[in-house]
Amino acid sequence: MGLNISLAPEVLFHIGSFTVTNTYFWFFCLWLFLVVGAIIFKSRIKLMPGKFQNLVEMAISGAYDFTESIIGPGKKAERAFPLVATMFFFILISNLLAYIPGQAAITINTSGGIVPLFRSIVADYGFVFMMTISVVILIQIIAIATSGPFAYIGKFINLRSPLKAFLGIMDLIGEIAKIVSLSFRLFGNIFAGEVLAAVMLFLAPFFVPLPFMFLGLLTAVVQAFVFSVLTLVFISMASEVSPEKATA
């Protein structure tokens, strides 16, 4: 087949020993856009909102209400909301960037051959993995902070009975499986969408890929939602005091 699909992102250029890949390039562009946009937006907030401010306020307050409905109102929601909402909007925008028409046609000539300038940021496993790792570490910290270090370790290493020891090991495996499942879900869906779109474009260039692209659009929104909601659910599970400790 004339397709070239690679799991790793394509290398654009090097700065010293630092490799800049096309996903990193787009990540940096998007980061800059969001940060500068947020600063400009913040300086222009008015008491009487305009059209754009109204839209943003609606999106943010809707997201906040949804966060409260999952994690419960009050301080927990206030603390969890910035992280989860940032993740949602970042993943959503980076997924939707792939649907700008014509971006796939732009290629540049590098020392490693001709490579496409654009690649969906989430289709780089490195980025998704780092995001997931930071989420899982955060969850462990929250769990330690709420139940105390001894109760936290006691959840995994419990020698009171063989059954409890076994369940502790299963809990440990479950924590590690969180990293794998959370990251592979996002990466796999987006990468598979890209591959599917490429294969369909290769087989039949006109009209046939459209339903698949629509499916990809749906996936882009749903996966951004799912990743942030699962993060939220994990945080709320970790921040709940276990029933054993509540009765003790």
């Binding site: 592979f184 990468f191 699962l230």
Partner: peptide, 23 residues
Amino acid sequence: PLMFVSMAITESTAIYALVISLI
């Protein structure tokens, strides 16, 4: 939303298989 979340969790095994075959 709960349906979407539970579907996403159900989907994980398919995603594992997908990742394996992509690799």
